[in-house]
């Protein structure tokens, strides 16, 4: 119990430091704000026209939310790579503090970047015709679900940031894996139109679940011209999202923590 308390306390202090850093280098938030704007506009108007117009744009937003949150994993990756390069991690490692707290502090403070992205994405969505059509409670649940997923993805980002040998590598490696992960899903198109192997992956991809769950909770239907989603993950999208998020954290928390312990020996 005292260990847990101490982890929480130390993580809180680290998060405080990260947020101060974030507030004093507002440029780092540029990606988190520009990216959702770009994706909404590109997909809504480049793809939107041929995929169903207004109905598609409303459908699209669930995918954009999921994608934006996934991409914020790169934010964690770059944050860690920077701290490593500047020697800040070494300073922390020489202090008598909880080690996992350094990573928890980072993943929680990075949630703030995700919140900024979420607000920007929502505003963009409203501008292209997306609306919250469900109840207020459902909408709150949808946002919480999205943030839970963002938090989980942040752990993957932390691990990548800790294994990347330099900031430069972290920058490209931190982003590149996100493209297949977010696009092989029902985020922007229907899964059933994909080749069979790919559609199986897409069906079980957590991005599909996040997109599906938020669509349901926000009351955004799949347009009539797209095949309706089927399968267990699609039918239990919210539950599956929670399960996936927990599983991702359960896998990547120990991985990142183990890596953190070894990281300065390179």
């Amino acid at each position: 119990m005292t260990t847990l308390l101490r982890v929480g306390r130390d993580a809180h202090i680290i998060a405080w430091r990260n947020l101060l850093n974030l507030r004093r280098t507002p440029g780092t938030l540029l990606t988190s704000t520009a990216q959702p704007i770009m994706f909404v506009l590109l997909l809504a108007y480049v793809f939107g026209g041929s995929l169903g117009g207004d109905a598609y744009r409303e459908f699209l937003m669930g995918g954009i939310f999921a994608q934006t949150m996934a991409f914020n994993a790169a934010f964690t990756t770059i944050g860690f790579a920077n701290d490593l390069q500047r020697g800040f991690v070494d300073r922390l490692r020489a202090l008598p503090m909880s080690r996992v707290a350094v990573i928890i502090g980072r993943t929680t403070s990075d949630l703030s970047a995700s919140m900024v992205s979420l607000v920007v994405t929502s505003l963009c969505g409203l501008a292209v015709g997306w609306r919250i059509r469900g109840s207020a409670l459902d909408a709150v649940l949808a946002y919480l679900l999205i943030l839970l997923f963002a938090f989980a993805m942040s752990w993957v980002g932390a691990w990548i940031g800790l294994i990347a040998p330099s900031v430069e590598v972290a920058m490209s490696a931190g982003l590149i894996w996100l493209f297949p992960v977010t696009f092989i899903s029902s985020g922007f198109v229907s899964v059933s139109a994909m080749p069979s192997g790919l559609s199986a992956i897409a069906e079980w991809n957590p991005i599909t679940a996040v997109a599906g769950a938020t669509r349901t909770l926000f009351g955004n239907p799949t347009p009539a011209n797209l095949p309706q989603p089927v399968g267990w993950p699609a039918e239990h999208a919210a539950l599956y999202t929670v399960l996936c998020s927990v599983a991702i954290i359960a896998v990547f928390l120990p991985l990142a923590a183990a890596r953190y312990r070894r990281v300065a020996t390179r």
């Binding site: 430091r17 101060l20 850093n21 004093r24 280098t25 500047r86 020697g87 800040f88 070494d90 300073r91 020489a94």
Partner: peptide, 15 residues
Amino acid sequence: SIGLSGQFASVDEKL
């Protein structure tokens, strides 16, 4: 027990 200062123990520039 130790206090470390030097080459690699850096300060946080933004603080």
